[in-house]
């Protein structure tokens, strides 16, 4: 196990180096840089940018250097834990990112929980009563979330919940709590706001979950041990929950690693529409405005989370499922 872990961790190093180079290359692909975006935006707003100041900023931000130099500067910083400088916020990236991580985590966690709560009963029912009317109806409802562009759902839900229930528009808490630390009152405010994004984000991943759970469970239900169990007179409920469901759940528990990257870019578009103080919209914005160190560092953090998440998933699976032996059979 330890040797396996060590090998996995070693392999991560070249992967991450390659990713950092590609990340940097990709965010440089679109034409222009942060300052040209800034100038364009000022012009579009009717403001006149000050040429001298732009030149000065370009030097100050190091945008006049070659991309290779910029990359080495950034990657070198990453090695010592310096995420670089955000042009747009005029702050170190670590300060910009840190603020929003709590809310991103809260939202990702809540949305995942919502998905599980909705998808589990539907998935189990659909598998047990395969091809029944209920199966079709529930699957259909679950799929609506997958099939509708989330940006539109978000807007519609937000507008009508405001009109009908007077729900607040956008955000994750009342603006008055924006600059306050987390408190009970703020938490209550968050509860009042968070259900819209949870429903919107949760719905889009529910269908996938229902489908997987149903397929996994159907596979298990055909196994001989189920027949044996039934022959031995186990009740249907006991029969279902005791073994097949546990087996069918393994892939999901193993999938826990994939929640990690969601912290960064999860449901970014919904985040934009609902104006959530999470990392996703910030990443989109950074990409759009060429705030390259912010965007780059975001993507790097995310890549690390993906790689770590995969590792966690593998370990979780091994712990859960005694049939899997890590490190064995990987030649094939």
């Amino acid at each position: 196990m330890l040797a396996y872990l060590a090998r996995r961790l070693l392999v991560m190093i070249p992967t991450l180096v390659a990713i950092s180079a590609i990340v940097f290359f990709i965010i440089q692909l679109p034409p222009g840089d942060y300052l040209s975006t800034m100038v364009e935006e000022l012009l579009a707003q009717g403001e006149k940018p000050d040429g001298d100041r732009i030149r000065m900023l370009r030097e100050q931000f190091g945008l006049d250097r070659t991309p290779i130099e910029q990359y080495l500067h950034w990657a070198g910083g990453l090695l010592v834990g310096d995420l670089g400088w955000s042009f747009e916020y005029n702050l170190p990236v670590s300060q910009v990112v840190g603020e929003r991580l709590v809310m991103s985590f809260l939202l990702a966690f809540a949305a995942t929980l919502f998905t599980y709560i909705v998808a589990f009963p539907i998935g189990i029912y659909s598998a047990v009563r395969q091809y029944s009317v209920g199966d079709y109806a529930l699957t259909f409802v679950g799929f609506i979330g997958l099939a509708t562009p989330s940006f539109l759902i978000a807007l519609v839900v937000m507008h009508f919940s405001n009109v009908w229930f007077g729900a607040p528009v956008g955000g994750l808490y009342d603006p008055a709590y924006a600059e306050q630390p987390l408190s009970w009152a703020k938490f209550v405010s968050v509860l009042g706001h968070i259900w819209i994004p949870i429903v919107v984000i949760g719905l889009s991943s529910t269908a996938e979950m229902i489908r997987q759970l149903r397929a996994n469970l159907l596979d298990e239900l055909q196994r001989p041990y189920v027949v044996t169990g039934r022959a031995k007179g186990l009740t249907e409920g006991r029969l279902l929950f005791r073994y097949p469901l546990r087996m069918a759940l393994n892939p999901f528990i193993a999938d826990i690693g994939s929640i990690l990257p969601k912290l960064i870019s999860g449901s970014a578009i919904v985040g934009v529409v609902l104006s959530l103080p999470t990392n996703g919209p910030m990443l989109l914005r950074a990409l759009q405005s060429h705030d390259m160190y912010l965007a780059g560092s975001f993507l790097m953090i995310e890549a690390v989370l993906v790689v770590v998440g995969m590792l966690i998933s593998d370990i979780a699976l091994a712990l859960l499922d005694p049939r899997i032996r890590l490190g064995a059979g990987s030649e094939k």
Partner: peptide, 22 residues
């Protein structure tokens, strides 16, 4: 496999965005 792993390590949306913006 390494290439696949690297590509899959990226969030899709930013990748889409950067490429289509380019």
């Amino acid at each position: 496999t390494r290439a696949i792993e690297i590509i899959r390590s990226f969030p899709k949306l930013p990748l889409f965005m950067a490429l289509s913006a380019a």
